Amino acid sequence: MDALTEMIKAINGIVWGPMMLVLILGVGLFLQLGLKLMPIFKLGTGFKLMWGGRKTTGADKDSGEISPFQALMTAMSATVGTGNIAGVATAVFLGGPGALFWMWCTALVGMATKFSEAVLAVKYREVDENGNHVGGPMYYIKNGLGKKWAWMGTMFAVFGTIAGFGIGNTVQSNSVASVLEANFSIPLWVTGIVLMVLTAAVLLGGIKRIGAVAGSLVPIMAISYLVAGLVVLFINVDAIPQALDLIFTYAFTESAAQGGFAGAAVWAAIQFGVARGVFSNEAGLGSAPIAHAASQTNDPVRQGLIAMLGTFLDTIIICSITGLVIITSGVWTSGVSGAALTSAAFAEALPGVGNYIVA
């Protein structure tokens, strides 16, 4: 197990090295400037379209399998949760409070990336032999760049499948199982089996059942978590100015070691802030447009405006709540990491309740 852990760390160091970070931020910035900051200025329009996209009528209804709102919730179902709880905590633990600033930067440029991904997904999607609308990077690479680039789409499909197990199943199930074991003493294997059965019940119903479940579940858990986070911040309101000072200070200067926190260089804040930001909101990973391709819409731009809200809501809103809760509570220097750190931060302000909310 130690050898496997070291191998994963080595691969992680290469994948999330300077080149990848420059590409992610660089492409996002290029798209944001190319769109003349439209994703930022059109946030209000996006929310109006999302609210109106809860139901589809007319020609749009026959142009996909799930409503635009369900497509957004399906994409967010993989981001609202582990990425917000364990991802943010790990970024702060490894990169210091300054990592949160770089998560914000990733989200601001990531909105343009997510908008572009969804537009391409709808524009270049196909209808399979069963009449279902399918799309995503593998399709818009093949149909948008031409068949000579189809090999690249195949590579994405292969690596995307592997990533589904890596950054998807293993991380998500481990975080869920760890928190439930810590708070309710539920054996890890029990949680694994229950998750397997529940997930299968949803997945075997296809994209329509996934959209229906996500459309109902994601808003409930997101709003519940937001309310709990705001309550904690209200309790720690006096510590918020200092927390913001730490975030902006440590984004550009080295974090000193204190308590169980080993300290972090500026590079660590950038690396873990960007990496965990992308892990949380998935902007540029190519997974979200697969869901948006099944949306009941004939307007790619309209779906793009809805899709970019996923990055805004996930990172700018929910991740910020988590980061501020962790920093204002003071437990970020305790030496605890991952979901356990977020759980401890909530429990610090809401003893006997906060940790159960996170669980």
Rank of each mutant, 00 (worst) to 15 (best):
I220S: 03
T253C: 05
G260Q: 07
A239Q: 12
A262D: 13
A256Y: 13
A256D: 09
I270W: 11
R209G: 09
F234W: 11
A243N: 01
A257L: 03
A256I: 15
I207R: 05
L204F: 14
S224K: 00
A264K: 04
V266H: 07
P219V: 05
A265K: 15
Y225C: 03
T249F: 14
A262R: 07
G273S: 13
P219A: 06
I270M: 14
L204M: 15
G205S: 07
V274M: 12
I247E: 04
I235P: 01
K208P: 02
I235M: 08
G215W: 14
A214T: 14
A228T: 08
L217P: 08
G229L: 01
L233H: 02
V231K: 00
A228W: 03
A269Q: 04
Q242Y: 02
V227S: 02
L226W: 13
L246V: 01
F272C: 00
S224L: 05
F252V: 13
E254K: 15
A228K: 00
N236S: 05
G206C: 09
L230C: 09
W267G: 08
A212P: 02
A275I: 04
Q271D: 06
A228P: 02
M221A: 10
V232K: 00
G273P: 07
G206D: 07
W267I: 09
A212N: 10
A222G: 12
V227Y: 04
V227K: 00
L233I: 05
L217I: 15
M221D: 14
F234Y: 10
S224C: 05
L244M: 09
V227D: 09
I270Y: 11
V218D: 10
Y225V: 07
A264T: 05
L217T: 12
L217D: 10
F272I: 00
T249Y: 14
Y225F: 13
I220A: 10
I210F: 04
K208L: 05
